[in-house]
Write a protein that binds this DNA or RNA. Structure first.
Lengths: 341, 341
DNA sequence: CTTTATACTGTAAGCGCTATCATAAACAAG
DNA sequence: CTTGTTTATGATAGCGCTTACAGTATAAAG
């Protein structure tokens, strides 16, 4: 906020050298005599000079800044991804900017223009589901962006889009979760949350059904409810399911799309006087920080989101065009119990 | 990722005009005939041209990007601040980058250099407490940054630092909380979390003590424990307090620095078989998204963090040098109850 | 004491824009 | 018709760096 910012010329003239020499010491180049290096460095320190990364960027064609697009930072799941990505970026000398999903929404003011104009060195996009058909422009916006910068995806990659990505093996996770619940004796297992099968490239439905098949259990449509990944939606969905079923057909266990939905289910169950896990087991996904502090502590799936974020940055920087799968781990707490006969 | 990026020269020559004219239509300047405007715009669209914001920044001295420094995005409290700030920034055409607190830590590699080099148009810094004495360099780093860009503070402003800021009226909040609890009949009220008085410019201690004074209750040192603002620290602190006191002197209510600490306290209490709120009332602060879903739902204080973040951006952009106080509101849930005689 | 590396250091041409002039064309007024 | 205005456009000088490329000493070699 002070006077005029000091430039490389100021340093050069004050040190009695050319700007090229200043640039050399700035970048720690070899061919500079120790004497002048010190002389120049002293002036730099004294004037508190910092080279402008933007001027630097003009020539070097690189901004050392990355971007990340995600749906909602208020969901700690994304905050974890962001944090992992941000920390890794920082280690590598990059800066990380956040863009909300609407940045890709073509119907809004200037679609991806803002993104394209900032010459980012790379972009991470968290895509959870395929957008509805009438919204394919979002996908094409995504595609266009690649013209300007490398992008890596986190979550899922739309079919026929060949992006580097970190995805979750959600089908396997679902299958394992069903196995876990059937192992506890459950037979009426509900799955709440998410979108229709054809919009979920992660094929959770396949895992769910395979899990049931493994235990020779039938797939029951009324145990499957689609809803958004929020607590409110989770409550509403469970209520709707229980309302539509006679109590003797109520599920004894529910798999929630994520921990938020699980929290909603737990609240709804409690409001109805159902005790968890005695009358209803609940399992979530994401292993949010609050999962251990819920009542009862929520069994969930740790998907190592920070590691995922960090890995995405590595892919971005290294330029590798490969798709990897994130690790995951079922973490048992008290929200699931053996079915009482 | 494609060939070479297209520049203003490409557009100019392809449209048969000078770069000055292209620049004019780019910026929607007046003095361009409708005919050439269309001609140029067509080429721009066809070539999918986006002006480089970095080249633009070199001349205009403005990057249209802001930064925010905060301790930990994983605490939803900060995620809310960030979200509010980010959304407001976006509305105003700015981009928002996150920097972790260590960006200010001089002992690390290059102190605030990274920040200074990116010619941000402004910086928001969340500072909760004064750093320990031996860490005053952090404060001076903060001060130095003002040489490069305007900064506004969120949280508290260190004495003798004249920054624009949004602060919380924490003393008043504390006093009101104590009043609320004494109103419920509590007399042994603990306060857990935070730092020593002389490092807390928000003077929570004053509010706490005034609240006690209002009810003619004595201040009891053993009801005051300092700890970090995490769930683990909250658990440990409550356990420590209860361990050191005979049960008949145990507090009947605890005020937690924030919801994380409150969650920790609730978990610790439950582990000891104390029922909340019957045997121990708990109140938090920040009103995190999970507060209503805890058991029992946590009474807390909504401090409108998103609004705070947005307002900080407004101060930054407008350049007003004023300090404002955030609104707040006690939101009653089930974790505090009238003391049973 | 020339010749030829070797080690520094300076000159100058951009990078892709914005912004200031200058110029040209088209009109209005005298 | 001049002269003065207005409107549309082009030339051009930076912005603050990086980066060939071009010197100029100084040292090693012949």
């Amino acid at each position: 906020m002070s006077s005029e910012s000091v430039t490389i010329y100021d340093i050069a003239s004050e040190a009695g050298v050319s700007i090229a020499t200043v640039s050399r010491v700035l970048r720690g180049e070899a061919n500079v005599s120790e004497a002048t290096r010190k002389k120049v460095q002293d002036v730099i320190d004294r004037r508190n000079y910092r080279p402008s990364s933007i001027a630097r960027g003009l020539t070097s064609k690189t901004t050392h800044s990355l971007g990340i697009i995600l749906p909602k930072l208020l969901n700690p799941h994304y905050a974890m991804i962001f944090t992992g990505a941000q920390e890794e970026a920082r280690k590598l000398g990059y800066t990380m900017s956040l863009f909300p999903w609407s940045s890709l929404d073509t119907r809004e003011y200037n679609p991806a223009a803002m993104l394209a104009e900032r010459r980012l060195d790379g972009l991470i996009v968290c895509v959870e589901y395929l957008p509805p058909d009438h919204d394919v422009q979002v996908l094409s916006a995504l595609h266009d962006l690649r013209q300007y910068m490398p992008v890596v995806l986190i979550g899922c990659v739309p079919p026929s889009y060949d992006f580097p990505a970190i995805t979750n093996n959600s089908a396997a996770m679902m299958q394992e979760v069903v196995r876990y619940l059937t192992g506890l004796g459950h037979e009426r297992i509900a799955f709440i949350g998410g979108v229709e099968e054809d919009r979920d490239p992660l094929r959770r439905d396949v895992g769910y059904e395979n899990g049931l098949k493994d235990a020779r259990l039938p797939y029951t449509a009324s145990y499957r409810i689609y809803c958004k990944g929020t607590t409110e939606a989770g409550s509403a969905a469970l209520n709707q399911m229980l309302d539509s079923l006679k109590p003797e057909y109520w599920p004894t266990a529910v798999i929630a799309l994520n921990d938020l939905v699980a929290m909603g289910c737990m609240a709804a169950a409690r409001d109805r006087g159902l005790s968890i896990p005695d009358q209803l087991s609940v399992i979530g996904c994401d292993n949010l920080f609050c999962a251990p502090y819920l009542y009862p502590p929520l069994t969930s799936i740790n998907t190592y989101q920070q590691r995922t974020g960090a890995r995405a940055v590595q892919l971005l920087i290294s330029g590798e065009n490969k798709q990897e799968t994130a690790d995951w781990e079922l973490v048992e707490r008290a929200s699931c119990a053996r079915l009482k006969p």
